[in-house]
Design a protein around this nucleic acid. Structure first.
Lengths: 238, 238
DNA sequence: AGCGTCTTTGACGCAACCCTGACGCCCCCG
DNA sequence: CGGGGGCGTCAGGGTTGCGTCAAAGACGCT
């Protein structure tokens, strides 16, 4: 995985690196940028808190040994207003120090010298669990003048009443709606709804398209939304 | 701070410890119980997954060296259906192993021998960040015309009297209510309530949906709130 | 050890769904 | 102008899935 943000394209993950040792900052910045992270860097606590407030990073990498203030104070300063994941770096192996940092609100604690692979893995873990819960919570709704389709809730509403669809009807509708405006070939429809071994049983499509139209179209015999493209396939239009 | 759960009284934090070395398990259990955690223990991967499904721990401590299966497989088995924090223990210091475990979905990685103080601090950190976000006011109360469900208090009230629900009934109701209006597939229901190894035992659903309807619906044979979507799943409507 | 509660499992009737075939229509093409 | 392929419609039958009931097994409590 090259990009830190998984499959779908989205805003790059923003990292705030706080360390006063130039060579460590340089190594981190290079490695992070190579993996398509967006990186800000600060070499003391004051600028760190400032950058955190203005740039809103998705994750913070914090070295405890700063020139101007105690690293734990930086953690408290951040935790006062944000739950952004904080990954602490430190040369100290002392258990007390780890406990203090973690209880102040740090998410993870890595002792120097550290392996870059491990650090990046811990960073990925921190970012991942901060991601919004629940997977696909987007309420994907498609609306026409006559009915609405809610892909997430698997609901179809027409004239204020819910329309009952059978599994096959729903599946067919789903494929069409996900390709709104585009032509979907008969073969593609058959394979997506009935399975990959189907492809020629166009009579299935005729029956189920008729049922969809009967349940959703104002005038089923003159469909406005479920359009037949003879010899090719079907198309859903808003 | 003696109690792991902050100030306000609430259910104790439940920890699942997975390790095949008895002395480690004993040390962990003693230390955790002394701090008012509720502790379950498993000494192999199979029972671990089973316990995770039935007991729903708030955090998992997992030793990678298990007799029956690879520790990473346990992580994947858990991540298939839950986001519970996973804290990995391991004797291996190898960087590759850490990266693999973290990328499989672990939240933290501690190498043995470990300091108990540090482990407990890391455990607190893992639990803390898994807590519900402060800003998101959970709709813990859901009301219909006939009954109300209080998700926080785990109470159901109907006609002014509390309704007694068995653990399974409640769990099923909870999943449905958290997805009010949305269709929940039979597989999802089975896996959330009975555990990840279930998915086809739809007869369980039939029995327990009937019991929920009998206890909550005005006319159980014509359910208004617990709607069956044949072949797909069930839906809770207000 | 005994009891009660909860969970699991099996059997049965019924309704709904999916598939199938037949028929008629329209449009394209010969 | 006639034939044919593709499409829409309808109705029947096999199959699946759901609701219900009942009883056995598992578990915890007294």
């Amino acid at each position: 995985m090259l990009s830190p943000t998984g499959g779908t394209p989205q805003a790059p993950t923003r990292v705030l690196v706080i360390d006063d040792e130039p060579q460590i900052v340089r190594a981190l910045v290079i490695n992070l940028k190579a993996r398509k992270y967006e990186v800000d860097a600060a070499h003391d606590g004051a600028t760190a808190l400032e950058l955190a407030a203005t740039r809103h990073p998705d994750v913070v990498v914090l070295d405890l040994g700063l020139p101007d203030m105690d690293g734990v104070e930086v953690i408290r300063g951040l935790r006062g207003w944000t739950r952004v994941p904080i990954l602490v770096l430190s040369a100290r192996h002392s258990s007390d120090e780890k406990v203090e940092a973690l209880d102040a609100g740090a998410d993870d604690y890595v002792t120097k010298p550290f392996g870059m692979d491990e650090l990046l893995a811990r960073l990925r873990a921190a970012v991942r669990r901060a991601e919004p819960t629940g997977g696909g919570e987007d309420d994907v709704m498609v609306a026409t003048e006559e009915f609405t389709v809610d892909l997430a809730a698997k609901k179809v509403n027409r004239d204020g009443r819910d329309v009952r669809l059978t599994p096959t009807e729903w599946h067919l509708l789903e494929v069409l709606v996900r390709n709104t405006g585009r032509l979907v070939s008969q073969k593609q429809l058959l394979q997506e709804v009935w399975g990959p071994s189907y492809g020629t049983e166009t009579n299935y499509l005729r029956v189920y398209m008729a049922q969809l139209r009967r349940k959703l179209e104002a005038d089923p015999s003159h469909p406005r939304h479920f359009v037949t493209e003879p010899g090719m396939g079907y198309r859903f239009e808003k």
